[in-house]
Amino acid sequence: MEPVEPVKTAYSPCPNDTFVFHAWAHGLVPGAPPLEVTFADIDITNGLAERGADCPFDMLKVSYAVLPWVLDDFALLPCGGALGRGCGPLLLTRDPGISLSGRTVAVPSERSTAYLLFRLWAAAEVPGDVGEVVVLPFHEIMPAVRDGRVDAGLVIHEARFTYRRYGLHRLADMGEHWERTTRLPIPLGAIIAKRSLGRKRLTALAEAARTSVRMAWDDPEASRGYVLEHAKEMDPAVADQHIGLYVNEFTADLGEAGYAAVRGLLTRAAAEGLVPPLNPNALRPY
Rank of each mutant, 00 (worst) to 15 (best):
Y64S: 01
A49N: 02
G80R: 01
A252V: 12
T267Y: 05
D41W: 14
R160H: 14
D240N: 12
P6W: 07
L91N: 05
P187L: 07
L35H: 00
R199M: 08
G153M: 00
V275W: 07
R214P: 05
I42L: 12
R146M: 11
V4R: 14
A106R: 01
A261D: 04
F74G: 09
F39R: 15
C14T: 13
E176G: 10
S12A: 15
L168K: 02
E256Y: 08
L48D: 00
F138E: 13
E272Y: 12
H157D: 13
P89N: 12
A269F: 08
F57W: 01
A75W: 05
S63Y: 07
D17I: 01
L188Q: 11
K194H: 11
A23F: 11
A49C: 08
R180Y: 02
P34I: 01
L265D: 08
D235P: 03
P185Q: 13
G128C: 11
L120R: 01
V133T: 15
V155T: 10
A144T: 07
P277R: 14
R263T: 14
P277I: 09
Y115C: 06
G88A: 10
A25G: 06
A222E: 05
V150Q: 03
R146P: 02
V262L: 09
W69Y: 13
T113E: 03
A257T: 14
V238D: 08
Q241Y: 05
Y226I: 00
P276R: 12
R268E: 05
G27M: 10
N279P: 14
F161Q: 05
D219Y: 02
K61W: 00
L91E: 03
P96Y: 12
A257M: 12
E233L: 09
K232D: 15
H230K: 10
D151E: 13
R263Y: 13
A53T: 11
L120G: 01
H157M: 10
M1G: 14
S109A: 14
F118C: 06
K8W: 11
L117I: 06
N279W: 07
A75P: 07
T104D: 01
A209M: 10
L184G: 08
I141D: 00
V130T: 14
Y246K: 03
W178T: 03
P3F: 08
V134T: 13
P277Q: 12
E249G: 13
R263E: 15
L283Y: 14
A124G: 05
F118Q: 00
F39N: 10
A239R: 02
K8G: 08
A124L: 06
N16G: 05
P33C: 01
G153E: 03
W178H: 04
H177C: 03
V135E: 15
D54V: 01
N248K: 11
L184R: 11
A10N: 04
L83Q: 10
L76W: 09
Y11G: 00
R263G: 09
R85I: 13
T18K: 02
V29E: 03
S12P: 04
L90S: 05
I156Q: 08
L67Q: 08
G148L: 00
G175E: 04
R160C: 04
R103Y: 04
G102H: 12
T181C: 04
G102M: 09
E50D: 06
D173W: 01
L91G: 04
F39A: 08
H242K: 06
H139E: 14
R51K: 15
L117A: 04
V134Q: 04
Y11V: 01
H169E: 15
L188N: 11
A65N: 05
R94S: 12
R199Q: 14
G84N: 09
V275F: 10
T104R: 15
D147A: 12
